[in-house]
Design a protein around this nucleic acid. Structure first.
Lengths: 400, 400
DNA sequence: AGAATTTATTTTGCGTGGCGAATTTATTTC
DNA sequence: GAAATAAATTCGCCACGCAAAATAAATTCT
């Protein structure tokens, strides 16, 4: 139940180094509250394990640059290579990253089936990871771990996909299947959680204790970070923000219920409204959205009305999150240019108008546009976290 | 940053004893993961400090009752008496409880002004606490601490009321004023948080890590417990669940915004709709609500429609909480009989229909009807927590 | 250039405190 | 009353965090 002191110290120091990028031992002592002696001991241990390394000398704080220069400690990128994979609708995007999260290679492979068996999916993921590893100049054998992000409900702890649109069966033991297919320690989680993890490890959420990450893709996702950790809920379904209800008896959603946020802001929601008018792109959502947005910008009243409603509903959803969580920061994180309109200043201003004000300014809402690798990067971050935790636990055992 | 090991152990053991009511040392060792030797040391320390005491011998686990019987440890009620006070619209309800949370005396005093200065409010609270102490057979001097629950936005850590309907000024240093007025260590927090604390310490949430507490009074409150701790958000406003938006451009709320949940389910919301028809109780909300509900039950279509909408909106709000938090439990905690209809099985069934299902059943929604002391009891719980923390910290220093 | 100064890091020695094992204590069963 | 059983305590060892001293690596002064 209670973790021993040394283990806490190791975690604190490794986390601090990761957040800072490069820190001197003195600063680690100050930030963690540990004594310098202890910091020396722990960092020596971590260096012995190959997890961190000394870097260049750092500039002294302030103008004083006399005295022995502080030497920066940093995560040793070469410590491990990991793969992260995101299972999308029709394809798998994989990335290979070093232990600092730097992406060394990437690959996209088509899914052999949109809904398939556990082993078949695991093979697809393994193939994607292998291809990304190749792009990084190595192979599956050169990797130390694998993280996978999938839509649906995932028991990350147990490594079981309770339900996912990509899998035929419920309660699929996907982690075990991945470990069998790749021979690598593997980790799986809900995709929204892993975007949050990417932000926490590498992005705008670095060093921030409480924040929310909202993504708009074909669905609307929410990752919750509280106290520097991903909050997963009791069943680990990920926060189903996209299916919170914004209208009683409202628009029909993919999930079969009515009034879901997603049913107002996802591209399919906008396109089905736009379908009232004849358009040249009936079967191509990407092109359809582009056209709709262009029409709205050029003043077409019907298109503008469709987009405006999505904006207002999205702002309302965000305002509700602010009212409930009172977070330090909300990150709107997304890859798709076609949802840019939702990330507009106009929308953010609307949020402020719907939150309870109390003298204090509303939380910052920051937009973080990312390339299509962010999901895979989050999955890689998860693998890094898992491997680091194992390595630290191993250190504890060695001593015994 | 990192709390020392002993302090962790003390907290874990005291918390475990509080949750269990009465536990033997062996079981404490098992549940906390500490060794029996350490448990003996810490419990001896806590007994020395007068925080816990040995109780009756406990029945052995299972059928085996041979061997030395396990002796139960329990919180020493007489350790401290504390007062809890809830600042309501027109009055202050105070309770005096012993360290186990048992209420020994209570009192209600009118507020000398609905909106007043910091010192004046502190004097009112002190008077209420004194009266409750008298009812418990002692006086203010017989108490060890005071907790106060108030509506509005409270920085519990700093002891400052950022904004409250009961106070004239913003950023009122109410904790300091209370300590000056009573001479007691004092603690203040948002009222919704303190109901959650009452549930966590004494109620349905005992021993549950992640749960939500929803209260309906004149407003709608939400207390969030994550990882066994109250989540307060970054500014400590308490979760403004009552002001989450359930309808775009919806009904006007007291807060000046539109579409707030509160503007659909609070009594004033129902009564203003009922005002369309002539009624005998224009100025009395209690009687007005009673009449409205009676009419609805007896089949009056307009009254039934008013109530039905409130139910549906409330269910939708709860469903959104479930979709976002995926909690273990939601406690509907309230005192007012006139809101009973919101706590109906019908409403709970509606929630299930609006949450994302994943094979797993939706979280349990439990109704906990409480008398009008619950707020004060929560405030007392907060004072107990604060005092216990101080006592434990004091133990640490004594050793040094 | 060399000494003095400044600051970072490492080493040393001490003390807290957790743990496993042995012991003591309280009770039931034979 | 003796044996058995199980809880609680005591004991001795050792991990580990810390303060202080020592050492190291730079800059500044003379």
């Amino acid at each position: 139940m209670i973790r021993d002191q040394r283990s806490q110290g190791r975690h604190a120091i490794l986390g601090e180094i990761r957040r800072a990028g490069s820190v001197a031992r003195v600063d680690l002592a100050r930030r963690t509250g540990l004594s310098q002696a202890t910091v020396t001991a722990i960092t020596a241990e971590l260096m012995g394990a190959g997890l961190i390394e000394e870097g260049t000398a750092l500039a002294g704080s302030g103008d004083a640059r006399r005295g022995r220069p502080r030497v920066g400690l940093q995560i040793r990128g070469a410590a491990h290579l990991v793969a992260g994979a995101k299972i999308a609708d029709r394809s798998i995007v994989a990335a290979v990253a070093d232990f600092t999260g730097r992406v060394l290679g990437e690959a996209t492979v088509p899914l052999s089936g949109r809904v398939q068996g556990t082993e078949a999916l695991a093979r697809d993921i393994a193939a994607a990871a292998a291809k990304a590893a190749e792009a990084a100049g190595t192979g599956l054998a050169g990797l130390s771990g694998l993280g996978a992000a999938l839509a649906g409900i995932v028991d990350a702890e147990a490594g079981i996909a309770r339900w996912s649109p990509a899998l035929e069966r419920r309660n699929a033991p996907l982690r075990a299947a991945l470990e069998a297919a790749t021979g690598l320690p593997s980790f799986i989680d809900n995709d929204a959680n892993l975007v949050a993890m990417a932000e926490l490890y590498f992005g705008e959420g670095k060093g921030i204790a409480d924040f929310l990450v909202v993504t708009v893709e074909s669905g609307v996702g929410l990752g919750i970070v509280l106290g520097g950790r991903i909050y997963r809920g009791i069943r680990g379904s990920g926060a189903e923000f996209g299916h919170t209800k914004v209208q009683i008896d409202g628009a029909l959603c993919r999930c079969g219920q009515r009034g879901c946020l997603e049913a107002y802001v996802a591209d399919y929601a906008l396109l089905r409204e736009a379908a009232l008018r004849p358009g040249p792109h009936p079967g191509d959502p990407q092109a359809g959205m582009a056209q709709l947005l262009a029409q709205a910008r050029s003043g077409d009243p019907m298109a503008a009305s469709i987009v405006a409603r999505a904006e207002r509903i999205f702002a309302m959803g965000l305002a509700n999150l602010v009212n409930i969580f009172d977070p330090q920061l909300i990150i709107l994180s997304g890859e798709l240019a076609q949802h840019d309109y939702l990330y507009d200043e106009k929308v953010i201003a609307m949020v402020a108008g719907q939150t309870v004000q109390a003298g204090a300014p509303p939380p910052e809402i920051r937009v973080h546009r990312w390339d299509d690798l962010m999901w895979a990067r989050g999955a890689a971050a998860y693998a890094i976290e898992g491997l680091a935790a194992r390595a630290l636990a191993g250190l504890g055992e060695d001593a015994a």
